[in-house]
């Protein structure tokens, strides 16, 4: 019985191995107003995969992305994930970022 269980878990682990789909990572930093409603439907688990991290506090976002300036909020960073993070768009215009993400989803 034991080898069978081990085999089942190995198959399960193999099945969970990463795939090579196009992946975008988005960081949204909130300003004075809550804007998470606008981004909720833009995350996608299908190709292109769009992962969105929405930060309530700019200090936490700075910890995640120490190499980028965040003087003005709200601010949105959109990265394409190849071997590293490659910045595609940095904007303080929320509508522009939403247009960009919608374009990605429909392309």
């Amino acid at each position: 019985m034991k080898p069978l269980i081990i085999l089942l878990f190995i198959i399960l682990l193999v099945s969970c191995s990463p795939t090579t789909e196009e992946r975008f990572y988005v960081v949204v930093v909130e300003g004075k107003e809550k804007i998470f409603d606008q981004f909720e439907d833009l995350a996608s688990v299908r190709n292109p995969i769009i992962e969105i991290d929405y930060f309530r506090k700019v200090e936490d976002a700075k910890e995640r992305l120490p190499e980028y300036e965040m003087e003005q909020t709200p601010v949105v960073f959109i990265f394409i994930m190849n071997e590293g993070k490659e910045l595609q768009l940095k904007t303080t215009d929320i509508d522009e970022s939403i247009r960009f993400l919608n374009q990605l989803k429909t392309s």
């Binding site: 198959i11 099945s15 299908r46």
Partner: peptide, 18 residues
């Protein structure tokens, strides 16, 4: 299912029984 199929589901169901 996203990157998932009925075979993996079978393994999960077997795990439930165990």
């Amino acid at each position: 299912f996203v990157r998932w199929n009925m075979f993996y589901e079978l393994l999960i169901n077997m795990s439930y029984l165990l």
